[in-house]
Amino acid sequence: MLAHNYFTSSIGKKQILALTGLGLLGFTVTHLAGNFFLFVGADAFNKYAYTLTSNPLIYVAEAGLIGMFLLHVVLALVLKTENHSARPVKYYNKTRTGRGETIASATMPITGVIILVFIILHLLNFKFGAHYTTNVAGTEMRDLYRVVIEYFANPLYVAWYCFAVCALGLHTSHGVQSVFQTWGFNHKSYTPHIKTAGVLYGLFVAIGFSSLAIFCHFQN
């Protein structure tokens, strides 16, 4: 049985943060894969969205996702607060060694906040956005494709979306390697490859989502 003080310990909190992060990494890439139906066309995308949302298991998945997300945010805030108070007097001129901290690792809290704001707006714009209906092969379903295309008609929204998914890419590039390190896997020859995989994952997410936004903009 897991000792109860695990969850209040520094390592326990880190590991749960990493685990929820891993779940969110999985969601992000699945979400991106699904959204690639936008490239196929309106019917394909709407049918995909309909199949996904009409399955009753979606509520279980959504509850799990919200739980993971909230836990990730709350733990990040707790850890950040603790870390902030661990150094009450700041340095006069702290310089990076250049051999440790990366842009991705140093900006985790900032990119995290950008992603949080982005996700709230994202849900309001799409999931809880305009409700059009369409008919695909005799089935009445939500025309989510139209909502997406109309949203990305505005170039400012495209720019904000690309900016936010780049923040997501940066955040996840540090996240991938952190999951392994925090869960105790650090290997002389594998760890450099894991770091590369993290960067590739981040690039895939940033480029993948951005390409969708730009593609949709030019569908107008």
């Binding site: 003080n5 520094s10 880190k14 850890l79 051999r99 901290e101 140093a106």
Partner: peptide
């Protein structure tokens, strides 16, 4: 447990320590 009680921060895998 002692490390946490002493008021140190939490590692976020920057590797500045190693450097």
């Amino acid at each position: 447990k002692t490390m946490d009680e002493e008021g140190f921060g939490n590692c976020t895998n920057h590797a500045e320590c190693e450097a």
